[in-house]
Design a protein around this nucleic acid. Sequence first.
DNA 1: AATGAATGAGACTTCATTCAT
DNA 2: CATGAATGAAGTCTCATTCAT
Lengths: 233, 233, 233, 233
Amino acid sequence: MTEVTAKAARTNKKVGRTASREVRRQQLIDATIESIAKFGIAGTTMTTVTGYAGLSIGIVNFHFDSKENLFEETLRYLAEEHCETWRKRLQSPDMVPAAQLLAIADAHFDPAICNRKNLSLWFAFYGEAGYRAAYRELVSEIDTERWETSIEVLKTIIAEGGYQGLDAEQIATMLEGLYDGFWLNILIYPGDFSREEAKQRVHEYLAQTLPKHFAAPAKGASPCQEDHSRHAP
Amino acid sequence: MTEVTAKAARTNKKVGRTASREVRRQQLIDATIESIAKFGIAGTTMTTVTGYAGLSIGIVNFHFDSKENLFEETLRYLAEEHCETWRKRLQSPDMVPAAQLLAIADAHFDPAICNRKNLSLWFAFYGEAGYRAAYRELVSEIDTERWETSIEVLKTIIAEGGYQGLDAEQIATMLEGLYDGFWLNILIYPGDFSREEAKQRVHEYLAQTLPKHFAAPAKGASPCQEDHSRHAP
Amino acid sequence: MTEVTAKAARTNKKVGRTASREVRRQQLIDATIESIAKFGIAGTTMTTVTGYAGLSIGIVNFHFDSKENLFEETLRYLAEEHCETWRKRLQSPDMVPAAQLLAIADAHFDPAICNRKNLSLWFAFYGEAGYRAAYRELVSEIDTERWETSIEVLKTIIAEGGYQGLDAEQIATMLEGLYDGFWLNILIYPGDFSREEAKQRVHEYLAQTLPKHFAAPAKGASPCQEDHSRHAP
Amino acid sequence: MTEVTAKAARTNKKVGRTASREVRRQQLIDATIESIAKFGIAGTTMTTVTGYAGLSIGIVNFHFDSKENLFEETLRYLAEEHCETWRKRLQSPDMVPAAQLLAIADAHFDPAICNRKNLSLWFAFYGEAGYRAAYRELVSEIDTERWETSIEVLKTIIAEGGYQGLDAEQIATMLEGLYDGFWLNILIYPGDFSREEAKQRVHEYLAQTLPKHFAAPAKGASPCQEDHSRHAP
DNA sequence: AATGAATGAGACTTCATTCAT
DNA sequence: CATGAATGAAGTCTCATTCAT
């Protein structure tokens, strides 16, 4: 379901008594995201979820078998939404490796991905011991895909640039750390630290580490996406 | 409460029926940490807490007014314990700025701080929307102290080294991001990512950014803490 | 509804969307019997019933007003099915009284009556306090008919045989007790107690009580009738 | 717990906040019996049970882990109460075999055992498919004990009397059938069939089958228990 | 006539909190 | 001080019933 449709469903609650199964499921997932972002996992009940969805309490066990399952499907949706964002960008055939790496990096700070609601969700699942296992099971495949794509791209870049003493895995580790760490800081100190600043810091790190491929961004300016190819050799 | 008392309470749980108020409180905070680490915030009940503490269920509302209050006091204790660690190290009078920065950085990956139990706790509180506000209130002062100390130290280092185009705030932001991001990865993928590796990545980042002050660490080896002063100019 | 139609409905469940009202009702009653036999009254829901019937959940409240009503109609059907069995056998005009009594007795242990599904049903309704009143209302007429027929037949037999000190009501009471008690034992211990054995025990009781009319059954170990009189004081 | 204490607990609901664990359990079992007798298994809820017990809803899961468990314990209590009744009577050392058999038979129609509440319970558990398995597991041991005791006693009686062509197992089967069948008739037609009449019918059956040991009871009179030994040879 | 998504009352259960001991 | 039985609000889930299609 596209976000537009989801929005529509949310705005126009009365979709008729028999909205399609998929529409209802998405409506409930959206409501779950909203509720967890606001009340946390412990504070999210069937009542808060169905309240946001504008539906009756009994419907969750009808479309999802249990609260547990609803939460897992919500997590899965979130992971896939994130993954789709950079995967789609990577499909452009004319992308040079550096542009690909930037696509992955910038996807983390895209407003569609990196917003209060989504970040709340991620850290809610990270934080709740009971869901960390579920997280690993559901998300590790997607995490691994991103990791391996990054490694491959980095190896190409290192080889192209003839960089000495650089290790693709170490750089990838740094990047993953920065993504997560910046997400957390954006979540906790939204007034002091912005999506834009996070992106800039990552760009600077790349310019400092792989200078032949990534030019230092202008001070205070965020690089346009169209310019990415410029950085390619 | 001093750390000694805390240790005592943890070791010798059965302190007799008339343990001092402070001992009982610490006993319950320790049990809360243990329970949240194992079961998460949602899975932690008065029963799990008092079970770990070896006390009766009625005692919590006696020493803390409510579960809410117990959790807040637990968070406060955790924040202070972390802060004490690096604050104590910084009090050594003969520390050069680079050593001070390393002290702060390495404190994050000290086994006493960076262990499964503590990390679980931090991310539990980060993740639960209802506690993020409490977190900010309790921890921002401590976070700010660390931030300002880092900034000051970094400014000194940049001036000393005559580094061009470096900004203390940007480096501090990177470091804070790495601390948090690495913590999260250690928590979620404990098999794939270690405390030691995290520390090394941070050291490398410093060596790459401020090369006159931080030598590149030997491959595969973790730098000894005693050697910190060596890195100073 | 005739038994033929019932059979038809049971065999050919898919009767098309426009099956007659009666066919649908019988289809649902059959499904109810099946469900109660398997899951009990408490475990029988509209979903289990319509599942067995291969129909949609909404249909019950269309053909029966409520679950309550469906259960009552099911009970009524069961009672009538049982009654038909022995009533039909009694209609043979050339039956002597002893044969009539045996017809009633044996009807209880006929495979069409005395099977797991039916016994489950009877005892489900007996057991559920809320349905005992309904049972009495629906079944007492049928029970009474059987009782009075038995009494009449017994009186004829006693008179014919010139039996001394025998009371038709007492014998009828014994027989009714044996029917019910054996049914229960067949239901609960199906491996240890069979329909056949039950029938034999009843036959023996009749041979022992009314020896001139009922010969001792052949082999299978049963006391000879000749010996009974010897035991008299 | 003696019945006196149980009664006391029921009458004097406020036993203090901390009645002994056993007292509370028995209070709840009594309330469960009362509720199932009145509303059936399907109609018995935690609310009806705790309502009868005069306690709060939450207490059941405190003393029993679940409704399921409460029901099983209730069934077990009932089975043991019945068993105790005849087991105790059999312990009298001066009992001749015929008296023993009568003790078992009459225990079934003792007012403490054979009353509306208890019979409702038995048939509730028999009738509910989900509990028949539990019944067998819990009660079969007790049933078997009674069966084997009866067989043994019957064999002695048959040998003593030199009865020809009698089989202990067949007589025991008849007796068990009569017990259950008469119980059911007492439950369903309490106005038409009494405990006393049932007992008399069983006595007559014994007198008819084993005349040297059991004298025919006087018409309309129920034999006193003290007289049992008289019937022994 | 038939479907099945939706509703919402009510079931079981959990658990923070209270309070007599 | 400490205990733990008891309370009852609130949570999840079930399911008879309704009603637009």
